[in-house]
Protein backbone atom coordinates (compact mmCIF):
# COMPACT_ATOMS: atom_id res chain seq x y z
CA UNK A 1 0.00 0.00 0.00
CA UNK A 2 1.55 3.32 -0.95
CA UNK A 3 1.63 6.01 1.72
CA UNK A 4 -1.39 8.26 1.65
CA UNK A 5 0.81 11.32 1.29
CA UNK A 6 0.90 10.82 -2.47
CA UNK A 7 -2.63 12.03 -2.96
CA UNK A 8 -4.14 14.82 -0.95
CA UNK A 9 -1.67 17.10 0.90
CA UNK A 10 -0.35 20.06 -1.04
CA UNK A 11 2.37 20.66 1.59
CA UNK A 12 5.35 18.29 1.68
CA UNK A 13 5.08 15.86 4.56
CA UNK A 14 7.70 13.92 6.46
CA UNK A 15 7.07 10.93 4.22
CA UNK A 16 7.98 12.92 1.13
CA UNK A 17 11.38 13.81 2.52
CA UNK A 18 11.94 10.24 3.70
CA UNK A 19 11.02 8.87 0.26
CA UNK A 20 13.46 11.23 -1.44
CA UNK A 21 16.11 10.21 1.06
CA UNK A 22 15.39 6.53 0.50
CA UNK A 23 15.53 6.90 -3.27
CA UNK A 24 18.85 8.73 -3.03
CA UNK A 25 20.15 5.91 -0.84
CA UNK A 26 18.88 3.32 -3.33
CA UNK A 27 20.58 5.07 -6.24
CA UNK A 28 23.81 5.19 -4.28
CA UNK A 29 23.46 1.51 -3.36
CA UNK A 30 22.81 0.65 -7.02
CA UNK A 31 25.95 2.52 -7.99
CA UNK A 32 27.99 0.64 -5.40
CA UNK A 33 26.57 -2.77 -6.28
CA UNK A 34 26.22 -2.61 -10.05
CA UNK A 35 29.06 -0.48 -11.31
CA UNK A 36 32.58 -1.89 -11.51
CA UNK A 37 34.48 1.38 -11.78
CA UNK A 38 35.96 2.33 -8.43
CA UNK A 39 35.31 6.04 -9.00
CA UNK A 40 31.61 5.44 -9.61
CA UNK A 41 31.48 3.25 -6.50
CA UNK A 42 32.97 6.13 -4.56
CA UNK A 43 30.34 8.56 -5.88
CA UNK A 44 27.65 6.07 -4.80
CA UNK A 45 29.08 6.14 -1.28
CA UNK A 46 28.82 9.93 -1.25
CA UNK A 47 25.21 9.74 -2.39
CA UNK A 48 24.36 7.33 0.45
CA UNK A 49 25.92 9.68 3.01
CA UNK A 50 23.86 12.53 1.57
CA UNK A 51 20.68 10.48 1.89
CA UNK A 52 21.43 9.94 5.58
CA UNK A 53 21.96 13.69 5.96
CA UNK A 54 18.63 14.46 4.33
CA UNK A 55 16.66 12.15 6.61
CA UNK A 56 18.46 13.52 9.69
CA UNK A 57 17.58 17.11 8.76
CA UNK A 58 13.98 16.12 7.97
CA UNK A 59 13.53 14.44 11.35
CA UNK A 60 15.14 17.42 13.08
CA UNK A 61 12.66 19.79 11.43
CA UNK A 62 9.55 17.68 11.92
CA UNK A 63 10.09 16.74 15.58
CA UNK A 64 10.22 20.08 17.32
CA UNK A 65 11.61 20.44 20.82
CA UNK A 66 9.22 21.55 23.61
CA UNK A 67 10.24 25.17 23.05
CA UNK A 68 9.01 24.96 19.47
CA UNK A 69 12.37 25.06 17.72
CA UNK A 70 13.93 22.34 15.51
CA UNK A 71 16.18 19.82 17.20
CA UNK A 72 19.60 21.19 16.38
CA UNK A 73 21.42 18.08 17.63
CA UNK A 74 20.50 16.42 14.32
CA UNK A 75 21.94 19.29 12.31
CA UNK A 76 25.17 19.16 14.31
CA UNK A 77 25.37 15.45 13.51
CA UNK A 78 24.88 16.30 9.81
CA UNK A 79 27.74 18.78 10.11
CA UNK A 80 29.97 16.05 11.51
CA UNK A 81 28.93 13.64 8.75
CA UNK A 82 29.79 16.21 6.07
CA UNK A 83 33.20 16.78 7.65
CA UNK A 84 34.01 13.09 7.86
CA UNK A 85 32.77 12.58 4.29
CA UNK A 86 35.07 15.31 3.01
CA UNK A 87 38.05 13.76 4.77
CA UNK A 88 37.05 10.34 3.46
CA UNK A 89 36.84 11.62 -0.13
CA UNK A 90 40.30 13.16 0.10
CA UNK A 91 41.90 10.01 1.50
CA UNK A 92 39.99 7.69 -0.83
CA UNK A 93 40.86 9.63 -3.96
CA UNK A 94 44.53 9.72 -2.93
CA UNK A 95 44.42 5.94 -2.53
CA UNK A 96 42.75 5.59 -5.94
CA UNK A 97 45.44 7.71 -7.57
CA UNK A 98 48.18 5.63 -5.94
CA UNK A 99 46.39 2.47 -7.09
CA UNK A 100 46.11 3.80 -10.63
CA UNK A 101 49.81 4.62 -10.67
CA UNK A 102 50.63 1.08 -9.62
CA UNK A 103 48.15 -0.92 -11.73
CA UNK A 104 46.93 1.43 -14.53
CA UNK A 105 43.29 0.54 -13.95
CA UNK A 106 40.28 1.67 -11.93
CA UNK A 107 38.31 -1.48 -12.56
CA UNK A 108 37.63 -3.46 -9.39
CA UNK A 109 37.80 -6.84 -11.09
CA UNK A 110 41.40 -6.15 -12.12
CA UNK A 111 42.33 -5.37 -8.52
CA UNK A 112 42.20 -8.77 -6.89
CA UNK A 113 45.53 -9.02 -5.12
CA UNK A 114 46.25 -7.68 -1.65
CA UNK A 115 49.93 -6.95 -2.28
CA UNK A 116 51.80 -6.06 -5.43
Amino acid sequence: MPPSCFIEHPMPTLAHYLIVSGLLFSIGLAGVLLRRNILIIFMGLELMLNAANLSLVAFSRFNLLPDGMPNYNGQVLVFFIITVAAAEVAVGLAIIVALFRAKQTTHVEDLNTLKF
Binding site: S4, C5, L14, A15, L18, F62
Partner: peptide, 12 residues
Protein backbone atom coordinates in the same frame (compact mmCIF):
# COMPACT_ATOMS: atom_id res chain seq x y z
CA UNK B 1 7.66 4.76 5.74
CA UNK B 2 3.99 3.96 5.29
CA UNK B 3 3.77 2.44 8.77
CA UNK B 4 5.78 5.17 10.50
CA UNK B 5 3.64 7.13 12.99
CA UNK B 6 3.38 10.76 11.98
CA UNK B 7 4.77 10.26 8.51
CA UNK B 8 1.82 12.19 7.05
CA UNK B 9 2.49 15.27 9.19
CA UNK B 10 3.07 18.52 7.43
CA UNK B 11 5.80 20.80 8.71
CA UNK B 12 5.01 22.07 12.22
Amino acid sequence: ISSLPGSGNTKP
